[in-house]
């Protein structure tokens, strides 16, 4: 199932970003999955947890934000949800429609534990 390759891409991004914050641990990854992105959130959660098992990121939690499917008719401006994937405007029956939300497959954030100021952070003597 392709949720596994998507989870692999997510893990690679976590490691890439975590390298920019040496000495801290990644705590939570936030992603946005659209209703019609073709990705099952629970399958993705399962695959991600399998990949994290027995690694340094095993405690990382996953926050999946699901986006509803919204299409907009480019003829009359009607906003509607897809039912059974039939992209026709319910108001004017045209096929000239555009998906404005629902096909997202995006990173949103990575939360890391508080990191120590750099030893060269003399420009911020008050500290954070």
């Amino acid at each position: 199932m392709h949720e596994l390759s998507i989870a692999t891409a997510m893990l690679e991004k976590v490691r890439e970003v975590a390298r920019q914050y040496p000495g801290v641990s990644a705590a939570k990854l936030g992603v946005r999955i659209g209703e019609v992105a073709g990705v099952d959130p629970e399958a993705l959660r399962f695959c991600f947890s399998v990949l994290l098992r027995d690694t340094e990121l095993e405690a990382l939690t996953l926050d999946i934000q699901q986006c509803p499917c919204v299409y907009r008719c480019l003829e009359c401006g009607e906003a509607f949800s897809l039912h059974d994937f039939r992209p026709l405007c319910p108001a004017c029956r045209t096929a000239d429609v555009q998906c404005v939300s629902g096909d997202e497959l995006e990173f949103v954030y990575l939360e890391v534990d508080d990191y120590a100021p750099s030893t060269a952070a003399t420009e911020n003597p008050a500290g954070e």
Partner: peptide, 10 residues
């Protein structure tokens, strides 16, 4: 806790 924004496609 520090939240790093990641606005990009997976």
């Amino acid at each position: 806790m520090h939240r790093v924004p990641l606005q990009q496609k997976i």
